[in-house]
Simulated assay, not measured.
Amino acid sequence: MESQNYVLAITGASGTAYAIRLAQAMLQSGATLHLVVSEAARQVALRELGTQLPGEAATSKEWLTFLATAFDQHPAAEWGFDSFEPPTDARLHCHSIRDYSAGIASGSFLTSGMVVCPCSMGTLSSVATGASTNLIQRAADVHLKERRPLVMVPRETPLGLIALENMVRLTNAGATILPSMPGFYQNPVCVADLVNFVVARICDHLRIPNSLIQRWGDES
């Protein structure tokens, strides 16, 4: 059995642009996106993007409108992102972080994978220890126990021993640790190029088709 349901959890680490661009790419691919956002993520987004993320009770329509204009404000307007027009058949489901009745809280709900982007050290720790104190942590735990792809995108520097040990623990449990470390061999000229590099790598690990970057060895 296969499903094109993907879960995107946005937590309170720096790197909101990665999450927004990833949501856009997932919807453009035709996937069904299940979105969960922490309160800390909303605080970070306001500082980084100069605009508010939709509230916890926001509808899918409100989120699609936001995704179409997320990079229009200063400072993001200077980062070089292409405009985004949500597909007319976009499938986006928004879940409260406290809603354990959501399908993604159960292994019986089929998904193709989950990504926590950006992933705070607090979320990393909670998932590594099986805390499951909110829907993000529970959904991540479900993906681990069901042996489905789980991609964690931490953004922290330097990395302390506890964080490193948590990453090893999650790797041993089946997760992929994919730090937001863009490569420079694509000769980036703007912030969007760096963000797209990381988003492309995330999509690759979730088997989501994309053409966000020119790949190594591709001379076309």
Rank of each mutant, 00 (worst) to 15 (best):
S101P: 03
T88Q: 15
T88Y: 07
S60N: 09
G107K: 14
E165W: 02
A45Q: 03
Y100P: 00
T11S: 10
V153P: 03
S14A: 13
Q214P: 00
R138D: 10
V37W: 03
V142L: 13
N5H: 15
G50P: 01
F66T: 15
S112I: 00
P154H: 14
Y185G: 11
W79K: 03
I97N: 11
H143D: 12
D82W: 02
S83H: 09
T171S: 06
G30T: 04
N210W: 14
P179W: 02
T88I: 13
R138Y: 08
P149L: 11
V115M: 02
E156T: 10
L135R: 02
G12T: 08
Y100D: 09
T65D: 15
P75N: 11
P75G: 06
V151T: 09
V115N: 02
G160H: 15
P118W: 12
G122A: 06
A68H: 06
M1D: 12
V115L: 01
V36K: 00
R98P: 01
G113T: 07
A68K: 12
A40R: 11
T111R: 15
L178W: 01
A31H: 05
E62W: 00
F109T: 12
T51E: 09
P154S: 12
M152R: 10
L135M: 04
V44Y: 05
E146D: 07
F197S: 04
G160I: 10
D89H: 13
M1F: 15
A105D: 06
I136N: 08
A76M: 09
L33Y: 09
R148T: 09
V151N: 04
N134R: 06
S106Q: 11
G103I: 07
A102L: 05
L206E: 01
V36H: 00
A139L: 07
